[in-house]
Amino acid sequence: MQSDTAYAAVHKRKKPFPQNARLLERIGADIASAIIAAVAVAPAICMIDKSIVENASGKRRLTSSIKDSIIHLVTKPQTFFLSRTFGLVAMVYAGTYIVANTTDTFLSYRKGNESITEVTAGTAKFAGTSSTNILLTLVKDRNFARMFGIGASKPIPLPTYALFCARDCLTILFSFNIPPVLSRVLPDNIGGLSSLSTAQILAPAGCQFLSTPLHLLGLDLYNRGAKLGMKDRFQAVSANYLKSSLARICRIVPAFGIGGVLNSKCRYHMMRNIEESIRSDQVAAG
């Protein structure tokens, strides 16, 4: 495999390319890359998401919840990977990566003269990935709140939905749109990583210090209702802010850092193979 530096250099290179070349095969590579990345990162995210919800509700301590989830994964992996919690998390990230990948493919297809390995950072990608991620994450969060919150299952209040939407918009912005821009000012080959790979890890991790209060406030509104004053809300959020931020960094680095890098690299290598095959066909055809 190529080094990260070589990967980044080739990734930015533009080549003339036939507009309609193997579009279905390219979409298949988009989907395969997304599923590989999602399944790889979902176990860690699943454990952390569950622990944050249980800790915010006062049901269990964060570390205790993570410990039990690890034991479950090690002792009963078949039930862990077939569980509803794992399925919900894998669904969120597979869906988000698929939309990000296919957006790049269709934009490349429309331009007609770009390398099919190119990644974009425009409005279309943000709109597609954010709307998909918000919808799927709301489904996941609604189920997690009901499964691991306190008291009887109840409807998710609209303010909680709004806060979760704002949280997810920030996450998507810092996971898919900020990294290509940030990579331009970062040095290459930091710890063996390209500037793009480094940005894909740093940007979503740093975002959690902004998005975690939105997440905690949404959970508090669900768990304790809407009648409490702002002072009580602030105390609840501030009490859990630091450990929840660190926990969310631990989940976002796999989700959109490591997962984003894995998805990008899998897609790049699959697309490069398709591109080389098409080039060979072009040469053979004269």
Rank of each mutant, 00 (worst) to 15 (best):
Q2G: 04
Q2F: 06
H11L: 14
K12Q: 13
R13D: 10
N20Y: 11
A21Q: 07
A21G: 08
E25D: 13
G28E: 05
A29Y: 09
A29I: 10
D30V: 08
I36L: 11
A37Q: 09
V41Q: 08
V41S: 05
V41N: 06
P43Q: 09
A44L: 12
I45E: 06
I48P: 02
D49K: 06
K50Q: 09
E54C: 11
L62K: 13
S64Q: 15
S64F: 06
S69H: 10
H72E: 09
H72W: 15
H72A: 12
P77H: 04
L82H: 12
R84V: 02
G87D: 01
G87F: 01
L88T: 01
M91G: 01
V92M: 01
Y93C: 01
T102A: 10
D104K: 07
T105Y: 03
S108F: 01
G112F: 04
I116K: 13
E118Q: 12
T123Q: 07
K125Y: 00
F126N: 00
T132A: 04
I134N: 06
L136I: 05
V139F: 15
D141Y: 11
N143C: 14
A145V: 12
I150N: 14
P155W: 12
I156M: 15
T160N: 11
A162H: 10
D168P: 03
D168W: 05
C169W: 05
L170N: 07
L173H: 02
N177P: 02
N177Q: 09
V181W: 10
S183K: 06
S183V: 00
V185K: 09
V185M: 10
S194W: 03
S197M: 05
T198G: 04
T198I: 03
Q200D: 02
I201L: 07
A203S: 12
P204E: 01
C207V: 02
H215I: 01
H215T: 06
L216D: 03
L219Y: 13
D220W: 14
D220T: 12
Y222W: 08
G225A: 10
G225H: 10
K227V: 08
G229Q: 09
M230S: 13
D232R: 14
A236M: 07
A239F: 03
S245I: 02
S245K: 05
L246D: 04
R248G: 03
R251S: 10
A255G: 06
G257L: 05
G257R: 07
I258S: 07
L262Q: 08
R267A: 09
R267D: 05
Y268S: 08
M271D: 11
N273P: 00
E275S: 11
E276I: 08
E276M: 11
E276C: 09
S277Q: 12
S280K: 14
Q282S: 15
Q282F: 12
A284L: 15
A284I: 13
G286Q: 15
